[in-house]
Design a binder for these strands. Structure first.
Lengths: 277, 277
DNA sequence: CGCTGAATTGACTTCGGTCAATTCCTGTGG
DNA sequence: CCACAGGAATTGACCGAAGTCAATTCAGCG
């Protein structure tokens, strides 16, 4: 339990956490499980009573179409909570597949629920993180709905790079992409044939270098500019979170002032706050 | 404050709420504002320190592309929380436009945050609702990325119908659609020209009748079947929510108890639980 | 060293976009 | 009550980005 927890690391990226919040996050994560590249963690429609926190590696979530197609909905990286989709039902809304060798911590839904009670501020923060992921998906929708193939692929590469960079500490522009062109296409709504052609164009334009599974984006700034890419994950606002403090004044209505004047984050001196890390 | 609140109504659709939870929700919503059809509530990029709850009418959220295009990300109906996207930043990630004449209640972000502290169970429920909306957007992504124009339009109509039905108590298959074909196209990634053609095909196939702004879906069941449509909003699981009640029983696991036993919600037996409504 | 799945490439098709001309509606003002 | 203006919808002719099909080529691997 004293180990570092990926979810803890992720959340403390946005907000200095108290010791007790950190403890709670660490103790949430249970059994660790390993998956090989390509292995399926949960099938679409399968019942699940747990979430998974990514401790290493990465994955994607996808749905199967009646007609035989497939849509890759999003990718999951270290620190991400997966299968949050399924929390709204008892069963998974998507198939979760390991893209690379992966370690996951299991997190029972019940325990996740308890977190909201025991650490409301974390609950609110999780809501905020979820909102930022929602926006990231909106960006994807925009990309797929309103831009051409080359732009979609470029945007996807930039997105994956920026996510991997945080977690894997990549230098900046080179990374391994263990996805087939079919996978890429399923993510952005293109056929594998056209993915191949689009990548070729990007390579010939000198924007991207490829060597096997290794991708290098030659000028991240410029490419981002060109396709109007925005990183939605680096920052999540926390100024609206409830003060850390003691339960409060519980009594709902009456007035809706915060219990103690201080607002924002950690308000309570008893709880030492750790540096962001 | 004693009036019915749309958010309250929405949430109690999924879970019987206690009096104090209801009170809290009612007292959250402040000034009521009216917007005419077509009016813009918030601009993309604009700073906001509030959310809006839809009390009547409907709206959509959209983003503008550099090249001049537009993507309509989603629609908002009575009881929906809007601009949750923006909670992750200080500014709105999308433009919010009234589709029909609309009443909104303003809800300051701070007050929203406090809700997580004062009523953790509602916080968790809001997370669940948000997850279901996330899935709805994933469905849209799948539709846009992987199906043809006719299917996209049909799916969109079914989606709008099923949302309106809940709130406006529509009979079942006929509703008013105050959107231009441009709007429809921006929602599903088609040009207005092709929207016109797709609607024509649907009409000629006898699947949809049109009369001005009035749409009638002739056999909802069949059309849903044809395009594999699923309503993602009617149900949200609540079995994982923390018990309303008393803090404690921190059971969790022996060790990591929250710092102070109390916290979380005011839990006492005094709070009667109301039937679903 | 051969197998197998992935990637590449070419020829051809097609769905949806573009452009532009009508037509339709609806609201407005005479 | 009617004429008219202007946006929305419809329709046709044409174009082009991406899909389909299929044949190679390539790369990793037992």
């Amino acid at each position: 339990m004293p180990e570092e927890s990926p979810l803890e690391a992720r959340l403390s990226q946005h907000l200095p956490l108290t010791y007790s919040e950190r403890d709670a996050l660490r103790s949430l994560e249970r059994r660790e499980r390993l998956y090989q590249a390509g292995e399926i963690v949960v099938h679409e429609g399968e019942e699940t009573d747990k979430l998974y926190v990514v401790a290493s590696g990465w994955l994607h979530g996808s749905v199967q179409l009646k007609g035989g197609g497939r849509q890759v909905l999003r990718f999951y990286f270290v620190g991400d909570l997966t299968t949050t989709f399924s929390i709204a039902w008892g069963r998974s809304a998507a198939t979760l597949t390991a893209v690379s060798a992966t370690t996951l911590y299991e997190l029972p839904r019940q325990a996740f629920g308890r977190l909201f009670r025991d650490h409301p501020r974390l609950g609110a923060l999780l809501y905020g993180v979820s909102a930022s992921e929602h926006v990231a998906m909106a960006d994807r929708l925009t990309s797929v709905g309103r831009t051409d193939g080359i732009t979609r692929i470029a945007t996807l590469l930039l997105d994956i790079r920026s996510r991997l960079r945080v977690t894997d500490g990549i230098d900046g522009a080179t990374f391994e992409l263990p996805l087939t062109q079919q996978d890429l296409g399923d993510a952005v709504g293109l056929t594998k044939t056209h993915v191949s052609r689009s990548l070729k164009v990007l390579a010939e334009a000198g924007l991207v270098d490829r060597d096997g599974k290794i991708i290098r984006i030659n000028d991240v700034e410029r490419l981002s500019q060109m396709v109007d890419f925005q990183d939605r994950h680096s920052h999540v606002a926390t100024d609206w979170l409830p003060p850390y403090g003691s339960n409060g004044a519980g009594e709902a209505n009456g007035s809706s002032k915060p219990a103690n004047g201080s607002n924002g984050a950690n308000g309570d001196i008893r709880h030492q706050v750790l540096p962001a890390e």
